[in-house]
Design a protein around this nucleic acid. Structure first.
Lengths: 341, 341
DNA sequence: AAGCTTCTGATAGACGCCTATCAGGAATTG
DNA sequence: CAATTCCTGATAGGCGTCTATCAGAAGCTT
C-alpha cells in the first residue's frame, strides 16, 4: 500500500510512463481517449506526484523578488528582516529571493522598478501603491507570466495573483470596538491619525474605524483625520497639536506608522495612560510603549507570516500547484501588554 | 555560483564523496584530521545539503501519531479536523499521520496508549495530562528514540522534545487585563470557571488571571473558581448557579470548554451582554456568541497552526535538522467581533 | 494503398543525496 | 616487520520525477 508512482499509473492504464508524463505535464498532444484512461488510473490509484522528486528533477532555481518601501519605517524594517531570514532558509530549497527598495509614495518610481525586473524573476511580491501607473506595471508583469503578489496594501483591479495582508477595514473596526469598550461610560473626543490618505490600507482602516465608532459609540466624538506621512517627527507634531487643541481627548487611534512620535507627544503633554492609545504593528518601539502602558493595544499583522505566505503563494504559482486558502489568510493580531510574543 | 553539492565539497577537501558522506551522517569512524578538512571545505563553500534530495534518497516514510482526548469538546474536534487535513497534505511528502483518541482525564489510559504505540511511530504528539504515570510513559518513548511533543497542555519535567501550545499563564493575564479594561470604573463581582483543576493549562490560566485581577483591578471582586469538567451541561449548571448567587456579577471568565452551557445560562438569566464574558477557543459556538455579543472576547490558539507546528517539530527531529524557534511559537490570539477570521 | 501526420513506447540521463560493498592504503600493534 | 585494525576511495544502484530523443505504430488523407 505504498504510494503509487508514475510507473504504477502507467501499468494500470496500460500505457508507458512517457505518456503518463505527457498527460501530467501537458508536454505533447495525447489522444483524448488515452488521456482519459490515464486520468482514470490516477484516480483509481489515488496517485499524487511526489513534490520532492518533482522539484529535484526540475532542478530549477525559483527566483523571487520582494519590493519594499525604502526609508526607516519600523514595520517595513521588520518585513525586510523577515525577507532576509526566509531568503536564507529557502536557499536550502533552491529558491533565490532578492530584496529591493523603492520609494513607496511615488507611483512612477515603483512602476519603473516593476517594469525593469520583468524577465529576471518568476515571481514578485510588492508593497504597492494603489495607482493606475502601478496597476499597469503589475498587469504587464502578469502578462509576461510573472506571478505578482501584493503585500500589506492591495491593488484591487489589477491582475495580481494574490493579496497577502489583512483586511484593513476589519482592522479599523476592531480598533473601534476595543476603543469603545475601553472607554465605556466615558465621554470625550477620539483622535485619528493616518500616514497618508493615498495609501489604500490607511483609508480602509479609517473607514472601518469611523463606521463602528459612529454607529456604536456615539457618546464619543470622533475628530477628523490628520495626516502624519508615516514620519515620526511629523506625526509627533500632529499629535502634539491634537493634544493641545483638545484637552478632553481620551482616545487616539494611529492608523499608520510613527508610533515613536505619538509616544513622545503623549509624554511631553504628560498624558500617557490618560489617553487610550491604539497603534498598528508590533515593533520594538510599540512593544516598549505597550509594556509601560502608553499604548493600550497594538493591532498587528505578522511580518514573518506575510513573507512566508507570499513565498508559498509564489511557489505554488511557479509549480502550478494549488494554494491552501486557510493557510494563507493573514490574521488581525491584537496585542495587549500580556500576550506580547 | 550554483549551490555546492557533496561532490564539490569532496573535491575541495581532497577526499572522496564517501568520506564527506561519512562525516555528514556519522556513518563510520573518520580520522579527526580528515573530519576537520571536510568541515573546512563545507564552511568554505557554504554547503547545505539539499533537503529535498536527502528526503527523496532516504525514501523513508515518516510515521507520526496524534493522540487527542475523546469526546465532543468543540476545540478538540477542531484539532482533530486539522490533523486529518494535514494528514492529507503531508501524504504528498511521504509522511503518514495517524490519529488516536483516548480518555484525557485518565492518566492510566493515556499512559497505556502511549506504551502501546511505541515502535509503531517515529514521533508522537499528544494532548497530555500532567501526571507521573503519563510522564513515565513519555520518558519511556523518548528513551526508545521516539520524538514526543506535548500539545495544548504541557507535561513539564518529562523528556518531551517540545511543547506546542500557548503560554497559559500569559493567556490568563491577557484575559484579566481585557476584563479589567472592559469593566473600567465599574464595581462588582467576576466569576471564574475551569474544566478541571487537574488540567495544567486550566490551572495556569487561572493563576495568570487571578494574579492580574488581584493586583491591578482590586475594585473588582474575584469569586472562587468553580469546576465544570469541560462538559457544557455541567458548565451550564455551574454558570446558572453563579448568576443566581451573584446578581452583581459583571464579569465571567471561562478557562475551559463548555461555552455552550454558559451562553445558555446567560440567556436563561437574561443577562447576556450585561456580563462581560471572556471565553477560550474560537469554535462555531463561540464565534456565533461573539458576533451576537454574548461573548465579548475569545482567546484562542490556532488549531491548524498547532498541528502544523507539531508536525514540523517532529519532522526536524526525525531528520535531525534544527527547528526555527520563532516559527514554532504559538500565539495567544485575541478575537473580538470584528477580527474573526 | 501509399504517403503523410499524429500518437505512443522505450529508454537514457539527469537531479543530489543515501546506502552498501569491497579493495587497498594507512596507521597501529605485538 | 608482519599482522592486525582502522580509514578511505571508488563505484554501483536507488529514490521518483523530468526532459529529450528516436523509432515505430496508429490514424488519416487522397
Amino acid at each position: 500500500m505504498a504510494r503509487a508512482t508514475i510507473e504504477d499509473v502507467a501499468d494500470a492504464a496500460g500505457v508507458s510512463v512517457a505518456t503518463v508524463d505527457r498527460v501530467l505535464n501537458g508536454r505533447a498532444a495525447v489522444r483524448p481517449k488515452t488521456v482519459e484512461r490515464v486520468e482514470k488510473a490516477i484516480r483509481l490509484l489515488n496517485y499524487q506526484s511526489d513534490r520532492l522528486a518533482a522539484r529535484l528533477a526540475r532542478a530549477k532555481e525559483y527566483r523571487f523578488c520582494f519590493i519594499l518601501p525604502e526609508g526607516s519605517n519600523a514595520y517595513m524594517t521588520l518585513l525586510a528582516d523577515a525577507v532576509r531570514e526566509e531568503a536564507l532558509r529557502m536557499a536550502q530549497e533552491k529558491v533565490v529571493i532578492d530584496l529591493r527598495h523603492t520609494d513607496v509614495f511615488s507611483a512612477e518610481v515603483l512602476g519603473q522598478t516593476l517594469d525593469q525586473i520583468s524577465g529576471l524573476y518568476d515571481g514578485v511580491a510588492a508593497v504597492a501603491l494603489d495607482h493606475p501607473r502601478v496597476r499597469e506595471s503589475i498587469n504587464a508583469l502578469c502578462e509576461r507570466g510573472v506571478a505578482v503578489v501584493t503585500l500589506v496594501s492591495d491593488v484591487p483591479g489589477s491582475r495580481r495573483t494574490h493579496y497577502v495582508g489583512i483586511d484593513n477595514a476589519a482592522a479599523g473596526r476592531t480598533a473601534a470596538t476595543l476603543m469603545g469598550r475601553y472607554l465605556t461610560g466615558r465621554r470625550g473626543k477620539v483622535g485619528l491619525i493616518a500616514g497618508s490618505l493615498s495609501l489604500r490600507d490607511h483609508v480602509e482602516r479609517q473607514f472601518g474605524f469611523e463606521q463602528v465608532m459612529l454607529h456604536e459609540y456615539s457618546g464619543l466624538t470622533l475628530l477628523p483625520v490628520r495626516e502624519g506621512r508615516d514620519d515620526w517627527q511629523i506625526v509627533q507634531g500632529v499629535a502634539a497639536q491634537l493634544l493641545h487643541d483638545h484637552p478632553d481627548l481620551i482616545g487616539l487611534y494611529n492608523v499608520g506608522a510613527g508610533t515613536r512620535g505619538i509616544v513622545a507627544a503623549l509624554e511631553a503633554a504628560g498624558r500617557q495612560r490618560k489617553v487610550v492609545y491604539i497603534a498598528h504593528e508590533l515593533t520594538d518601539e510599540s512593544r516598549r510603549a505597550l509594556i509601560d502602558g502608553t499604548i493600550d493595544i497594538v493591532i498587528n499583522q505578522d511580518a514573518g507570516h506575510e513573507v512566508r505566505s507570499a513565498i508559498r503563494v509564489l511557489m505554488s504559482r511557479a509549480d502550478r500547484s494549488p494554494i491552501v486558502e486557510a493557510m494563507e489568510r493573514i490574521r488581525i493580531d491584537i496585542y495587549v501588554r500580556d500576550n506580547i510574543p
